[in-house]
Design a protein around this nucleic acid. Structure first.
Length: 197
DNA sequence: CGTTTTTGACCTGCGC
DNA sequence: GCGCAGGTCAAAAACG
């Protein structure tokens, strides 16, 4: 039994796949080590324009890719400035998903939307969400990538202090890992449980 | 009827 | 201090 964490238990429609442009070996490698897929190597990376840098690799992989201990910082100077407000130990994750619809990356956690703002230079608004769990302060922001409007950037801040309400299990016997070459996390390839293994 | 979304108002940090 | 931009609040509306 492989336990790859909860990436997208309620896959609906992210275009054809959960796919990334270009290639960044380091970022990709860290994510895949977390997922622990062994020798199988899906194609995953960040766009070169964003130059996402891995800035932290901390504790063991958690219950969700979206809340994995890997955090990224966008290499752009202005962007770093904007992020200065965050505490140094703030864990920030940025995920980029191809999506034809204005929908959030579904990571298995329950979120409550609390705001929407037009962002300067971006024709699409940014959406603000908080984790619905009473004592959890994790937030996520969702916005379209200006340089690539068919992609959606999902930014997570903080770590959940509780397990995901929806945990993914993957049975290696009937699941072809090589099909992850395009990271197509569709529900039919997984079975789910709401309790720990 | 409880939960979530919507949306305008309010707050905060920053540059000038 | 002022104005702008981004982030949050909270009441009302919508939803299931």
């Amino acid at each position: 039994m492989i336990y790859p964490s909860n990436i997208n238990p309620d896959f609906t429609d992210f275009g054809e796949t959960f796919k990334f442009d270009d290639y960044d070996d380091d970022a990709f490698q860290m994510i895949m080590e977390g997922i622990n897929l062994g020798d199988h190597s899906p194609t995953l990376s960040w766009t070169s324009s964003e130059k996402l840098l891995a800035t932290e690799v901390a504790s063991p992989f958690q219950t969700s890719l979206a809340t994995s201990p890997i955090s990224f910082e966008i290499g752009d100077k202005d962007e770093k400035k904007k992020r200065k407000r965050h505490k140094d130990d703030q864990v920030i994750h940025v995920f980029k998903t191809k999506s034809v619809k204005e929908i959030a990356l579904d990571d298995g956690y329950k979120w409550r939307k609390y705001g929407k703002k037009p962002i300067r230079g971006n024709p699409f608004p940014r959406h603000y969400h908080k984790c619905s769990n009473p004592n959890c302060i994790v937030k996520k922001k969702i916005e379209r990538d200006t340089s690539n409007p068919e992609y959606v950037l999902t930014t997570y801040e903080g770590r959940h202090n509780h397990p995901s309400p929806s945990v993914v299990y993957c049975d290696s016997d009937d699941f072809d890992l090589t099909s992850l070459n395009t990271l197509s996390f569709q529900t039919r390839t997984y079975s789910y449980s709401h309790s720990a293994p």
